[in-house]
Amino acid sequence: MPSETPQAEVGPTGCPHRSGPHSAKGSLEKGSPEDKEAKEPLWIRPDAPSRCTWQLGRPASESPHHHTAPAKSPKILPDILKKIGDTPMVRINKIGKKFGLKCELLAKCEFFNAGGSVKDRISLRMIEDAERDGTLKPGDTIIEPTSGNTGIGLALAAAVRGYRCIIVMPEKMSSEKVDVLRALGAEIVRTPTNARFDSPESHVGVAWRLKNEIPNSHILDQYRNASNPLAHYDTTADEILQQCDGKLDMLVASVGTGGTITGIARKLKEKCPGCRIIGVDPEGSILAEPEELNQTEQTTYEVEGIGYDFIPTVLDRTVVDKWFKSNDEEAFTFARMLIAQEGLLCGGSAGSTVAVAVKAAQELQEGQRCVVILPDSVRNYMTKFLSDRWMLQKGFLKEEDLTEKKPWWWHLRVQELGLSAPLTVLPTITCGHTIEILREKGFDQAPVVDEAGVILGMVTLGNMLSSLLAGKVQPSDQVGKVIYKQFKQIRLTDTLGRLSHILEMDHFALVV
């Protein structure tokens, strides 16, 4: 994948999101292997301009796509893939009243899908469409860049269908997702969380590099694949309309690839034109409109599966009536509230959605109805927002919020430890010299600072030695090549209790 991002070429006709291997024109390309080798690009942008032909009021008969309808489940399912879809609609009884809503608040519980998330729908649909058009064949390999849930859905379907599955996901995604993927037989590649989507090191860039190296491999490409919004247009939206008897006044959905909100909203605009569509985008993402909503100094966020630093091709923002931004604290607070007060075992993005819903639905009156999409299960986040310690460490809970008995030293300040200034190293000294210094002084790690004293990161003896043994660096290389740029900081005025929580999850903390 090139470091400079080429513009994806656009073909003359058809839909841009065809499933299957992508040609340089962004659509299915038939021909000899030699032709494909000559024409197939190194990668295709996940934010390529959409060429979708959908228009409100256009006859369904003019759609270029294969459409399906929700099917009634048999008493005995032939395999677990038949437990994807037909998820329950559940009334939220307490939270709406707590925040003064007059309307009825309903939750579409997508964590009841077989793999635990709304992404099971698009995973199965992308595979079925690729099999139907002859792209996927027995023994082929599926590769997908994902925040985890699409990966789980694909790995689940691949396990049943017999495909090899490789999932490329950023490091910030939970260990629970990784464990589930491994249990399903998927191979996992992790990428830096802070890598831009168009960087060769991003999950998108690495996935395309693997595709170019592995024979008979395919990126189904949830960011561009029409099967993504079509899955929701054909099934999720129809289920909502049936469950609500066609009567709903507002739908609120958090947005990642945009397939969920695009597919549902398009069908609702056709069948229930008075329904307002509300999009939820986390602070630090750029999906919301108008652009002024996205202006923030924050560039990272903890909530998973929603928000991006690019506009995915499948996201149709014209069908969203209003956007709201959400933050991590309210997302996790509301997710825990949904679990504790409503018994809905949902993930953090569901918290984002409901946090926005109780604001947006203030305009609705008694007798009206708001539906929220709860995308995934708490299963993926047992060591994250479900953990009091994690919430404390991230600053989303305060010590006084917890009532468990603490040891005698818990409320003492870090400054009472009488710490001395640490050994520091410059980023320009060599790895070999740094190892000598650390061994001589008896230290395992040291902060790396520039000549102005600005902290650049941390270097550890173990990481340097393993990097040297693996051949990633040489003793003569500058130590700046092996620094940890993500590390926890703590102030002298913070409590030892807070430091204790940090050290339970990290090997060190830097006192500043």
Rank of each mutant, 00 (worst) to 15 (best):
P2H: 13
S3T: 08
V10T: 10
C15D: 14
C15K: 12
P16V: 01
H22P: 02
S23R: 10
G26C: 09
S32F: 08
D35M: 09
K39D: 15
E40D: 13
W43P: 10
I44Y: 11
I44R: 12
P46T: 01
D47S: 07
P49R: 09
R51S: 10
C52S: 03
L56K: 11
A60E: 11
S63G: 08
P64C: 04
P70L: 10
K72M: 04
I76R: 02
D79H: 10
L81D: 05
P88Q: 05
I92W: 04
N93A: 08
K94F: 03
F99G: 15
G100P: 01
K108R: 01
C109F: 05
G116R: 07
V118G: 06
V118W: 05
D120W: 05
S123R: 06
L124G: 06
M126W: 03
E128N: 07
L136F: 08
G139E: 01
G139T: 08
T141R: 07
T141G: 06
P145F: 03
T146V: 07
S147E: 03
T150H: 04
G151S: 03
I152S: 04
L154H: 01
L154P: 01
L156I: 07
A159D: 04
G162E: 03
K172W: 00
K172I: 01
S174P: 02
S174Q: 03
S175E: 14
D179A: 08
L181N: 00
I188C: 03
V189R: 06
P192K: 06
T193D: 10
N194S: 13
D198Y: 05
S199F: 03
S199M: 02
S202L: 02
V204W: 06
A207L: 00
A207H: 01
W208K: 12
W208M: 12
K211Q: 13
N212P: 03
N212H: 04
N212L: 15
N216P: 05
N216L: 04
N216E: 08
S217P: 05
S227H: 09
P229Y: 05
Y233Q: 00
D234R: 06
T235I: 12
T235K: 09
L241F: 11
G246Y: 04
K247F: 01
K247Q: 15
D249E: 06
V252H: 07
V252Q: 07
V252N: 07
V255D: 04
G274E: 10
